[in-house]
Structures are given as C-alpha cells and as structure tokens.
Simulated assay, not measured.
Amino acid sequence: MRIGFAGLGNMGGRMSACIVRADREVLGYDLRPDNIVAAGAKAAGSVGEVTDGSDILLLSLPDSRAVEAVVLGDDGVLAHARPGQIVVDLSTAAPDSTTRIHRLLAERGAAYLDAGISGGAAAAEKGTLTLMVGGEPDVLDRARPVLELFSANIFHCGPSGAGHTVKLLNNFLNAVALSATAEVMVAGKKAGLDLETVLAVLNASSGVNFATLNRFPKIIHGDYLRGGLTNTLMLKDVNLYVELVARLGVVSPNSAGPLASFGLARALGYADEISNTVVDAIGDLSGGVRLHTKEEPAA
C-alpha cells in the first residue's frame, strides 16, 4: 500500500518517521515544508496530490475544524477519494464530525477509520503508541500492517466515531490526573516537602496515576518533556469531552478542575507550551512556585 500522511507536526511527524525507519516511503503534506523534511517524507504539493498518491492516507491534525478543512475543502480528500482507499484520522476530533465524514467517504467507495492515539511524543518517537479505532473491522485489518509501524496496541472500539469517543474519555482522565497532580505538587513544594519522596509515596499509594509515574519525575528536575499536547489542545479536548457527555445526558462535575487549570495556563501565557506546564501556571498564582530547583526558565 502506498502511504500518504497529511499533518506532520509534533505527533504526525514522529509517526511518519517511524514508518520511514521501517523502509516504507511516505508521501507527506504539511503547511510547513520543513515538517515534511523532518519527518523523512517525500513532499506532496497539496492535499489532492497526497490523496491521489496514496492507498492509505493518514491524518494528524489539531481538531475537527482542521480535519473538515482537509477532507471537505476544495481539492480536499473527499474530492479525490476513490473506491478501496483508506483514510485514517489520527487526530482528536468530535465523534459527530467523524461519523459525517465516514458517511461522505463511503458514498465514494472509500473507507474511514477514526483512530485516537495515546502515549504522547515519547511513544510516537519509539513507535509504541496505543490506538483506539472506530470503523469497520475488515478495514482495520487492511490498515493494521501500516498502523503497527508506529503503535504497540491497537484496539477496535466499535463503529465509526467509537475510536474518537474512547479517545475523549481517555484524554479527560489524563487532563484530570495532570491538573490535579500539578496542584498537589505545588502544595508539596510550598509545604517544604522533598518532592522525590512525595512522588515515591504517591506511586506506592492510592494517588498513583500516569502523571505521577511518567511526568512529574521529570518535571521536578526541570524537564517538561516538550513536544506533546499543548495547553490549548488539552483544553480543546476537555471541551470536546464536555460536549460529548452533555449530548449523552451525563453530568460532569469533575470537568470544572481541568477546564479551570488549562484555561488558566492559556491565560497566563502557556497556551502553546506542553500541557505539563500547567504546573507553572498554578505555581504562578501560588507565589511564583517552581518545582525544580535549578536556575533555569520553566517555559
């Protein structure tokens, strides 16, 4: 299968590089030509060109608005889609938009998979992402050999939209854990506690979570693991989750925390910084607290 890739930023570029390292050629399109070069892809001049030149087209874009622009716009994916072609959306998008695009591509004989990803920049770099996929099982079977080039776990979650729905559920829990742990770590710092000890206790106790295990052991030493989801994108994902559960009729009292935390980070100038810097936003309003002791900028 000829592989195309549209959207070669922080995550898409890393996934493309994994494919290239497996000795597969990637035809890539991005608004920034330097991203195509960094991803090791061969450059396409337009969305139409990358669609025409691929049997499986991967998308990694910021949100549903960007996905719809690429797929439904003039000279977009839909205008060039053909029978038997597979389009895989690796973005975090609204499930209702996803199912609409699925239907429109199906009318042209093309297949559409929504494949939410988890693991962050580090997993994308190593090719060990987790994928949550919605769409027809037989289409996933056809796409799997390509998807396995940058993922370690692939879950079929159900029909179209199910992958992006599970992704929103996962990202909401990630946002809760990250923002709550950031607050706790700032409190620990202000209490004069040794943060290595605090993390060791949390990770051996009921407060353990992904952030305590994988993020804050680095953050307390000034390494913010840059390259992953920004505060702006995290806030976008939480808002998508809130919209989803509202449509489902599920109350969401727990969304207030991450909405406030990542909204605060945006307002204080951390909008385009990795979401781990939410701890600095909380620290700013707590007396200028930084978890790390080195004399170095936090952002």
Results as ranks from 00 to 15, higher is better:
H221N: 13
A110C: 09
A265D: 09
C18I: 02
G12L: 00
V71D: 00
D55N: 06
L131D: 01
T165V: 08
G257W: 06
V47R: 01
P83S: 11
E25R: 10
V238W: 10
A115W: 03
A106S: 14
P33S: 11
I36E: 01
L244M: 14
L268A: 12
R14D: 07
S160D: 08
A93C: 08
A152Q: 05
V50N: 06
A187I: 11
D52G: 13
G135E: 00
L233M: 12
A187Y: 08
K42Y: 04
I36P: 06
G76E: 00
N153G: 04
E243L: 08
V201A: 15
D55K: 00
S255Y: 05
C18Y: 05
L140P: 04
G12W: 02
I220K: 11
K42C: 04
T277I: 07
H221V: 08
V77A: 01
G257V: 14
E183D: 15
S118N: 08
A281Y: 13
V139P: 01
A79D: 13
A123E: 12
Y224V: 08
T293H: 14
G84M: 09
S205A: 15
L199G: 07
L61Y: 03
R32E: 14
I36H: 00
M11V: 07
V37K: 05
D74W: 10
A177V: 04
L61F: 02
L27P: 06
H80L: 08
N214P: 09
R103C: 05
V20T: 13
V77I: 15
L259K: 08
L27A: 12
R290S: 15
I274L: 01
D223R: 01
A94C: 14
D223V: 10
L72T: 03
A122D: 14
L193M: 14
S206E: 07
L244Y: 09
R100K: 10
T99H: 03
D223Y: 10
L235C: 08
G53K: 02
F150N: 05
G288H: 10
G134F: 07
A177L: 06
S255N: 11
G7E: 02
E49Y: 01
R21D: 15
G7D: 05
Y270D: 15
G227N: 10
N239W: 10
R103T: 11
E136Q: 13
V198Q: 09
Y241R: 09
L248R: 05
G7T: 10
G28I: 04
K236H: 11
F150K: 00
A175T: 05
D63T: 12
F172D: 06
A267D: 11
D280A: 11
T293F: 00
L178C: 13
F172H: 11
V70H: 00
F262Q: 09
G227F: 04
